[in-house]
């Protein structure tokens, strides 16, 4: 059975994405560190029941507190899970660091560029197709609070893939 992990920095909206995907009741708040333990929910993708885990926010795969330890533990245990990396579109640089770490461990990744609306308001525009081709994994802009982009995210989950960091370097450093 396919499993999905939601990973990303604290307060980028993982729990909101989680609730939108699964209809669950994970607590959503606007402060970093709301989720301190993982939550489990289910979503139907192409007729298959798929388990989704909402993981506590983490800055990197080197944990520095209990909540991040939980995140790393789930990440290591669920070896075959697809990772939805949730990024704050207004600060994608920070989120990409975690993405690179995850890709280095040869995991299937799809990126949700969340808070797309806030980024737009701030005058930040991101060429997400180009970002996707550089990284070699799908990138979907989302506004989880309103639900925008969530359908596309679900439809693109089967396109989640691994990507060799060396070839990312080749594509991006020219």
């Amino acid at each position: 059975m396919l499993k999905i992990l939601l990973m990303g920095h604290p307060n980028v909206g993982k729990s909101v994405v989680f609730n939108r995907l699964t209809g669950a009741n994970a607590t959503e708040s606007n402060y970093p560190g709301t989720t301190v333990d993982y939550e489990k929910g289910y979503v139907f993708i192409e007729g298959h029941e798929t388990e989704v885990l909402d993981v506590p926010g983490t800055f990197s795969l080197y944990p520095k507190d209990k909540a991040e330890e939980v995140a790393l533990k789930i990440f290591t245990q669920e070896k075959d899970a697809v990772i939805i990396c949730v990024l704050d579109a207004t600060k994608i640089e920070r989120g990409l660091y975690l993405v690179l770490e995850v890709l280095e461990r040869s995991r299937s990744v799809i990126i949700a560029l969340n808070m797309w609306d806030v980024a737009k308001d701030k005058g930040i525009s991101i060429d997400h197709d180009h970002l996707s081709s550089l990284l070699g994994v799908p990138v979907v802009p989302t506004v989880a609070v309103s639900g925008a982009g969530m359908k596309e995210l679900i439809f693109s989950i089967h396109e989640a893939c691994t990507s060799d960091v060396k070839s990312i370097v080749e594509r991006a450093m020219v």
Partner: peptide, 16 residues
């Protein structure tokens, strides 16, 4: 990693 991220964001992000 940070250098790579710098390059990626320079190619994809525009600050208006």
């Amino acid at each position: 990693k940070w250098e790579l991220i710098d390059n990626i964001s320079r190619k994809t992000v525009r600050y208006g």
